[in-house]
């Protein structure tokens, strides 16, 4: 009937029982899925962070460099290694084509990490735990994060950022 005129009073035709039941089941599923999302936002432990600020790129770069200078403990392949303080915000810079610094975190300790880009958009992808966030220049994203396992974690960029996009890496060490 898809190309023919429907019954003029199609709006008054009765809907079959099974289709009615299916629509009802679907509506219930929709409401449940919505409520689950709301409930997890209130009580769940993994939620996309809500805290973000508009920043100018130079201001972010300046604060991040000062942070690195203050807490730097080592250097690895030219990238500073920083022991993240427990009572102060940490910084993570994304730029073509690396993340800086390498952050040393403690297991089960909560950190506030301020992330932004100094050039184009990047993707902050922590592997293999597989958590992904968008990094947008001009916006500072505050990730309040608690690593629950020990180890060395790779950061890869997962937003295309230029021809060397695939070499863009970083590291988080959880002790």
């Amino acid at each position: 009937m898809a190309i023919n005129k429907p019954n003029e009073v199609y709006w008054e035709e009765k809907v079959g029982f099974s289709e009615k039941a299916w629509v009802l089941l679907s509506i219930v599923a929709c409401i449940v899925m919505f409520m689950v999302m709301v409930a997890w936002a209130i009580a769940g432990k993994q939620n996309p962070p809500n805290e973000a600020y508009r920043v100018s790129i130079p201001s972010f770069a300046e604060r991040a460099e000062a942070f690195i200078e203050k807490y730097k403990v080592d250097e690895e392949n030219g990238i500073p290694v920083v022991e993240a303080p427990e009572d102060e915000d940490s910084y993570l810079i994304a730029r073509m084509f690396y993340f800086s610094p390498v952050l040393i975190l403690k297991q089960n300790q909560t950190y506030r990490i301020r992330v932004s880009s100094l050039d184009v958009q990047h993707g902050l992808s922590i592997q293999p735990v597989n958590m992904n966030f968008q990094v947008v220049p001009g916006y500072e994203y505050v990730l309040t994060i608690k690593p629950t396992e020990k180890g060395e974690f790779l950061i890869v960029c997962n937003e295309y950022c230029g021809l060397a996009h695939h070499v863009m890496k970083g590291k988080i060490i959880v002790k």
């Binding site: 999302m37 936002a41 993994q46 939620n47 996309p48 993707g123 992808s125 992904n132 968008q134 997962n158």
Partner: peptide, 11 residues
């Protein structure tokens, strides 16, 4: 799903 997207965004 807002939260599950953290595991799939840009993968």
């Amino acid at each position: 799903v807002e939260q599950i997207n953290m595991k799939l965004h840009n993968t």
